[in-house]
Design a protein around this nucleic acid. Structure first.
Lengths: 206, 206
DNA sequence: GACCTTCTCACCTACGTGTTAAGC
DNA sequence: TCGCTTAACACGTAGGTGAGAAGG
């Protein structure tokens, strides 16, 4: 077991708590490029979306769920002649974390269906309430499940897990055209740039 | 004090819990018509929106907040020659309640800013997870603040309050033109029907 | 000059409005 | 016929896309 990717297993009410990434095939498809995520001043959503299923929570206990980004290595990265190569030393990271909007909620809520972080936004600008990343650095998404400390509830251990499949390089503009095409192909909000729509537009211009 | 509009005052942590309607002037403007709310098969939002401010909760205690509709009287209503008149006996009511999407949450969360029920939907069709009303019946919105029963937390009393200002008649289509005009004037989503936009369209057609 | 960032834009998704005509 | 309900519709709000030009 890789201790950098998962906190010590935690027993809660006699059950082992697990956090599992849901949409692995899509993440793996992007990762062959490798994945790039756009960061903007006002914040940009992620695609693919980090979605996890959690098991083994105590149904009646209260938890909050968070996501943050781990800096994967200590280099900057550059896209040179069609390839990503590691460059100088990494910049100072920003300590930011995103609380899932359903938080806080009962264990029964969190385990009943996959937890999607579709609304999290990535930015290169501090002070917006979003996840702050450095452009041209490599990250990996991490999810935390944190029991709420009620006044009489016995403290339960906090657990987290990060996902190698979600590794990406933060960019202000896409570098690898292959990434762009995968985003257009899979993200419904980019449907304006699919081949079908481009052809339609050309026809209309004639 | 009118005992049908408010549960017995509840002390929580030495403070009196209060629930107060926020946007009273707008509600009163509609109420002179009187107010009508459209119900549809798939659910229709309310306008005006029920928005309340809550005070006196224990900051560290957990609460859920609900809204439901009280049947104001036991009559059906009819719009005859420009006036609402009470008709036959009321139909059997449906017991439905709407949980505010922030629920459950800490007392500190609920009191820090007004609580808006903008997303609640009214329907005349059972089984959609929305508030089910009978068309042509008169209702009044009621808000509940319910402490969550943590396993070791002492049970706190549940409180509720209903608001005479929010009284309305459920309809499948607006009856009073005055109501329609007030909705168009005040609801941003109905901007397509304002005089300004209608005139623009006429000009473009010429 | 090369690299990276920022901004505006057209074009989508998603869905909240009253209108209108049709249905019962 | 009349009263009420339903469904399709045009037209907004609100905001998520990559493209491309401009800036540093």
């Amino acid at each position: 077991r890789d201790s950098t990717h998962q906190a010590a297993p935690a027993m809660q009410g006699g059950q082992l708590v697990t956090i599992q990434l849901e949409n692995v095939p899509l993440w793996e498809e992007f990762r062959t490029c490798p994945t790039e995520m756009v960061v903007t001043r006002q914040g940009r959503r992620m695609f693919p979306v980090v979605t996890v299923s959690v098991k083994g929570l105590r149904p009646e206990a209260m938890y909050s769920v968070f996501m943050d980004m781990i800096l994967v290595d200590n280099h900057r990265w550059k896209y040179v002649r069609g390839e990503w190569v590691s460059g100088g030393k990494a910049d100072q990271p920003h300590a930011t974390i995103y609380k899932h909007p359903d938080s806080p909620h009962y264990g029964s809520h969190w385990v009943k269906s996959p937890i999607s972080f579709s609304k999290v936004k990535l930015t290169n600008r501090i002070g917006e309430g979003h996840l702050v990343l450095n452009s041209l650095h490599k990250y990996e998404a991490r999810v935390h499940v944190v029991p709420e400390q009620g006044q009489c509830v016995h403290p339960l251990p906090s657990i987290w897990k990060s996902f190698r499949e979600t590794q990406f390089i933060a960019v202000t503009a896409y570098q690898n055209e292959e990434v762009t095409q995968l985003k257009i192909k899979n993200n419904p909000y980019a449907k304006a740039f699919t081949e079908a729509h481009k052809k339609t537009r050309v026809v209309e211009e004639q």
